[in-house]
Simulated scan of single mutants.
Amino acid sequence: MSAAPPSTDVSGPNGSKGARTMSLLRDTWLICLRQLRPTLHSPVAGLGFSALQPILYLALFAPLLSGMPGAMGENPLQWFVPGVLAMLALFGTSFAGFGLLPELRSGAHERLLAAPVNRVALLLGRVLRDIAVLLGQATVILLIVVAFGLRVSPAGAVAGLLVLLIMGVGLGTLSYMLAMSVKQEFLFPAILQTTTMPLILLSGILLPMELAPTWLYTLSRINPLSHVVDAERALFAGDFSDPSVLVGSAVAVAVAVVALALGTRLMRRLAT
């Protein structure tokens, strides 16, 4: 790609707000399609391998939950699947920035920054691609577990996926920000492993946190992911009136809003 004079907005600094918005949406869509192309060329590799770990958890770990107190219903899948989908969203989006590191190392990302494209769209397009992949993976897993007897509320499943996608927007944005900050392939996964493992262990995805000691349960309530997992379980059960639905949804929206605000500021600063 040949370099073009830097421009933070192809509509120009004096363009109308509507023109700038349309430019942002168009550029975001084009970047998303560019990032999606490898996945569309190899959909099995792009969707299947990333979803393999959650499927293994469902096959090898969920049966161990049978009869365990704190699990929702007689079928352990009713309790376990919403948490596994939250795990998929966490790993699928928080490690998204890893794919940006080779472009940062080779200079490809700098050439994109010099192209006549909205800088914020360079971030949003990548995040939109990750959300599309996440939705595809979550849908595949849902179809599999429904075939094996999982009973879910259709409306609750749609609402639960929406909450996960919103949270994925925030986590994906933070992942790309981290990649642009550290720019080192050995440091990026080390930081993520250090942060994601406590989030997983304190979220109640694998085991009910109600069974934990008081101090550990208190720590889990500080973990934002635990509230999203609680909301997912209530939504998939069709219990929209459960207070955890409102709390988990608010947490997901808050993570997305804060991350997008920080990410937008970073991309605009890179344009100067």
Rank of each mutant, 00 (worst) to 15 (best):
S2H: 10
A3F: 10
P5I: 07
T8M: 13
V10G: 15
V10I: 12
S11G: 14
G12D: 02
G18P: 00
M22T: 13
L24H: 06
L25I: 15
D27H: 14
D27P: 04
T28V: 11
W29E: 07
C32T: 14
L33K: 15
L33D: 02
L36E: 08
L36Y: 05
L40F: 15
A45T: 11
L47S: 01
G48C: 01
G48E: 02
S50H: 09
I55G: 07
Y57D: 01
L58Q: 02
L58R: 02
A62I: 02
A62V: 05
P63A: 06
L64N: 06
L65K: 05
L65D: 04
A71G: 06
M72I: 15
L77G: 01
L77V: 00
L77Y: 12
Q78M: 10
V81T: 13
V84Y: 01
A86W: 01
M87V: 02
A89R: 05
L90D: 01
F91R: 12
F91T: 13
F91C: 01
F91N: 14
G92C: 03
T93Q: 10
S94G: 00
S94C: 09
F95H: 09
G97T: 06
L101E: 05
L104H: 02
R105N: 09
G107L: 08
H109L: 09
R111D: 10
P116R: 12
R119L: 05
R119H: 14
L122M: 13
L124H: 04
R126P: 00
R126H: 08
R129A: 09
D130V: 09
L134A: 04
L135S: 12
T139G: 09
T139Y: 03
I141P: 03
L142C: 06
I144S: 00
V146H: 12
A147P: 00
A147M: 11
L150P: 02
R151H: 14
P154A: 13
A155L: 15
A157R: 08
V158F: 12
V158G: 01
A159Q: 06
L162D: 01
L164F: 04
L165A: 15
M167A: 15
G170A: 01
G172V: 06
S175K: 10
S175C: 10
M180V: 09
V182H: 10
Q184F: 00
L187T: 14
F188T: 08
F188S: 09
I191V: 15
T194R: 11
T194E: 00
T196C: 07
I200M: 14
I200R: 09
L202R: 06
S203K: 03
G204R: 08
I205P: 00
P208G: 03
L211I: 08
A212W: 06
T214G: 07
L216M: 14
L216H: 05
T218V: 10
T218G: 01
L219V: 08
S220E: 01
R221D: 04
N223M: 11
S226L: 05
V228E: 03
V229R: 03
A231K: 02
R233S: 07
D239Y: 06
S241K: 12
D242E: 11
A250Y: 05
V253M: 12
V255Q: 05
G263Q: 05
R265K: 14
R265A: 15
M267Q: 15
